[in-house]
C-alpha cells in the first residue's frame, strides 16, 4: 500500500464504557464491561471512563462509582429521556471530541447495537461486533476476538490506524467486578447545545414486557436436547431442577417441536448463558448451541455417544444414558435431603 499517514495514538487516552440503560435502569452488561475496561486500562496505564446519557440519572451515576471507574461523564437532559438515535449519537460525539478516549466498549444490547455503529461511522473508525475476548497491546491497539459464521470461525480483529476503537460485547460474556462499599472516582456533568438534541423520531409508548425468568440470569441450568424423548419427560427434568435450584433450558429442535418457550433456547439464535453450572442432557453440542453456553463456569454433559462434540466443551463428560443416570441421581438427592 502507498504511504497512508499514521495517526498519533498518544493523543487518545482512556477506556470508556457506555452505560446501557432504559429509563435509568442500568443494564448489568455495563458493570461487566467496566470490569474488563479496568483490566485493560491497568495494562496500558489509562483511566477508565463511563459515559451516561439520559434524564434524571445523577443518582444512578453514583452507583457506577462503586465499580471502579475514574470518571463518569453525564449527559442529563429532558430530550434524552428515551433512547433516540440522533440525540444519543450527538452526545457520544460530543464526549469523544472533548475527551478523546482510545477505546470504547458498548454492550451488545438493542440500544448498543444501534448506537455503536452510528458513532463508529461518524468518526470513520472500526467497530468489532460481539467480541468474546478482549486484550490490549502496548501501543494501545485493542485485540478483539469474535465468532463469525455461526461460531464456526473465530476472528482476531485489530483497528490499527483509527481512533477511537469501538467494540460491542454481549451480556454474560465478561464477568462483573465485585461492588465496592466505598465510592471512588467522580461525576462530571457535560453541557451540550440544545439544537444538537433534535430528532425525527418520536417515542409514542414504552411498555414493560411481562417480567419473565430469564435463563440468562440463572446460576444453574439443566439443558435438554433431542436425547430427551418426549415432552412428558420434562417432568423428571423439572423435578431435578427443583432439587438443585436450576432453570430448564433447551436446544433449538425442542423449540421447533413446540415443547418449550423460545425464551428458553440457548445458542446463536437463542440466549447466551453463563451460569455457575450447566448440565446438558442429550445434547450433541452443535457449534450453534455451544456458542451460547461455552462461557459457563462448569459444564457437565450427559450423552450416550462418546464421540458427541459436546464432550469437547464439557469439563465433566458422562458417557451414559440420561434415562439411567438422572432417575438415580434424583433418588440419591432426595434420600440425602431426607425427603
Amino acid at each position: 500500500e502507498e504511504d497512508i499517514p499514521q495517526i498519533d495514538k498518544n493523543k487518545w487516552k482512556g477506556i470508556c464504557v457506555y452505560v446501557d440503560h432504559v429509563e435509568g435502569n442500568i443494564h448489568p452488561v455495563t458493570f461487566e464491561l467496566i470490569g474488563k475496561a479496568r483490566e485493560l486500562a491497568s495494562k496500558i496505564n489509562h483511566p477508565v471512563y463511563a459515559v451516561f446519557i439520559g434524564e434524571n440519572i445523577k443518582d444512578k451515576a453514583e452507583e457506577i462509582l462503586h465499580y471502579g471507574v475514574d470518571e463518569v461523564f453525564l449527559y442529563d437532559n429532558k430530550e434524552l429521556v428515551d433512547f433516540r438515535i440522533e440525540p444519543y449519537t450527538a452526545c457520544f460525539e460530543d464526549f469523544i471530541n472533548k475527551i478523546k478516549p482510545s477505546i470504547i466498549l458498548v454492550g451488545a444490547t438493542t440500544v448498543g447495537r444501534s448506537l455503536a455503529p452510528r458513532v463508529a461511522a461518524r468518526f470513520r473508525t472500526g467497530l468489532t461486533a460481539d467480541c468474546t475476548v478482549l486484550d490490549v497491546k502496548e501501543n494501545t491497539d485493542l485485540v478483539q476476538i469474535r465468532p463469525a459464521f455461526g461460531g464456526n470461525i473465530m476472528a482476531q480483529i485489530n483497528t490499527p490506524n483509527t481512533r477511537p476503537q469501538l467494540a460491542t460485547v454481549r451480556y454474560k460474556v465478561m464477568s462483573a467486578p465485585q461492588r465496592n462499599d466505598e465510592k471512588s472516582g467522580k461525576i462530571t456533568l457535560m453541557d451540550i447545545e440544545k439544537e444538537k438534541l433534535n430528532s425525527n423520531i418520536e417515542v409514542i409508548s414504552v411498555t414493560k414486557k411481562e417480567k419473565e425468568v430469564s435463563i440468562s440470569d440463572a446460576e444453574v441450568i439443566i439443558a435438554c436436547g433431542r436425547g430427551v424423548k418426549s415432552q412428558k419427560d420434562f417432568e423428571m427434568i423439572k423435578e431435578l431442577c427443583d432439587l438443585i435450584g436450576a432453570q430448564i433450558a433447551v436446544t433449538r429442535p425442542l423449540i421447533e417441536a413446540g415443547w418449550a418457550d423460545a425464551k428458553r433456547q440457548i445458542g446463536l439464535s437463542g440466549r447466551t448463558v453463563k451460569p455457575k453450572l450447566i448440565i446438558t442432557c442429550g445434547i450433541s453440542g452443535a457449534v450453534q448451541f455451544t456458542a451460547g453456553m461455552r462461557g459457563s463456569d462448569c459444564i457437565i454433559a450427559i450423552n450416550k455417544d462418546e464421540k458427541a462434540p459436546i464432550f469437547n466443551v464439557a469439563h465433566y463428560g458422562i458417557v451414559g444414558d440420561l434415562y439411567e443416570v438422572l432417575p438415580r441421581l434424583i433418588e440419591k438427592i432426595k434420600v440425602s435431603k431426607g425427603a
Partner: peptide
C-alpha cells in the same frame, strides 16, 4: 479501519474429565 489479523477454529477445552462405567458408578 478494521483488519482481520487471523482466523482460527474455536478452542476446545483440554482440561476435562470423561467418565465411563455403569449407571450406578456414573450417578
Amino acid at each position: 479501519p478494521t483488519q482481520v489479523e487471523r482466523i482460527f477454529p474455536p478452542s476446545v477445552n483440554n482440561d476435562k474429565e470423561i467418565w465411563q462405567g455403569n449407571s450406578d458408578e456414573l450417578t
